[in-house]
Design a protein around this nucleic acid. Structure first.
Lengths: 158, 158
DNA sequence: GTTTTATGTTTGGCCTACCAAACATCCGGT
DNA sequence: ACCGGATGTTTGGTAGGCCAAACATAAAAC
């Protein structure tokens, strides 16, 4: 999940950085216009925000105005992307939220989750994917419970 | 979890409404100053925001300036509080996040979570509290896994 | 009853984050 | 070489959300 809790980065900044990272990965380049379109804002707005991010040392400008991420920027983006992936997986694989809804929710929550909580969520997913019988049985039982409101093997009480 | 997804209420508004609800519950009354102190903002800021909430029909003013919630305001506050409770419980009881951290995180996330996702989370908690053997064994195994990185009863693979 | 003190409001200012629209610049096609 | 469309920047404006500080008023204390 990577250390760096320097994230106190704003919602907007987080989205700009992640946009660049995603565009770079998907198309190999990212320009002001691409970021703006990706985020659904105007080029003017993106231009200004990105310039400020350059001055903060998070974003780099190519000789031909192609955008990149500095080491710091890359770390912030990666940390947010990692949190986002964990959250999405948690919602989909454990809670059973549908993909579309999960994507929507994680976009809103991604940069707000603390590193510690994200770490715990990742741990849970690791456990689920460990394939242990407890995990498998739990998921199966919860799946049934979601549908018909019963916990399968009872033994309720406490 | 209550229907009402009219929540597209801002972070700030959400906090003001919840503050009033909490103050009413805890002390039986809520004034501008109390809300301001509760939120850690100045009375001036609270005064302005609360006035706008009155005009939106969410907050009511007593004859002696005591604050209340309209039916609509109460519903919004309750819906957010319910989401918050679910999230906190999820973090603490399932993920094993410590109370303090969970409180911090939920404060940031509470009003952003969709009703559908919150409903799923509540369902998971209901299942956990059903006391079914799958749930109990799962929690126990995950607890061990968190500590020593092993899933207890293996049978891994898939 | 007058003076503190607590409470509420208003004002002016700041910062973020956005838009629209004018402007500047570049780049490809002919 | 020129023009048009795509791209980037700047400018002026709006809105939310906050503060500080001046002000007004209500409640306590004396």
């Amino acid at each position: 999940m990577s250390t760096y809790e320097h994230d106190p980065v704003s919602h907007s900044v987080a989205h700009h950085l992640v946009a660049i990272a995603e565009l770079l990965e998907e198309y190999g380049y990212a320009r002001v216009t691409d970021v703006a379109r990706h985020l659904g804002i105007t080029r003017g707005s993106a231009s200004i925000t990105l310039k400020s991010l350059e001055q903060k040392g998070l974003v780099t400008y190519d000789d031909r105005r192609f955008l990149g991420l500095s080491e710091a920027g890359r770390q912030v983006a990666e940390s947010i992307q990692a949190k986002k992936a964990v959250l999405r997986d948690l919602l989909v694989r454990v809670l059973g939220v549908d993909e579309k809804q999960a994507e929507e929710d994680t976009c809103k929550l991604e940069h707000l989750v603390s590193a510690r909580t994200a770490e715990r969520a990742r741990r849970l997913l690791d456990f689920i994917e460990s394939g242990s019988s407890e995990a498998r049985r739990f998921l199966a039982a919860f799946g049934r419970f979601r549908k018909d409101g019963t916990g399968g093997t009872e033994e309720k009480g406490r």
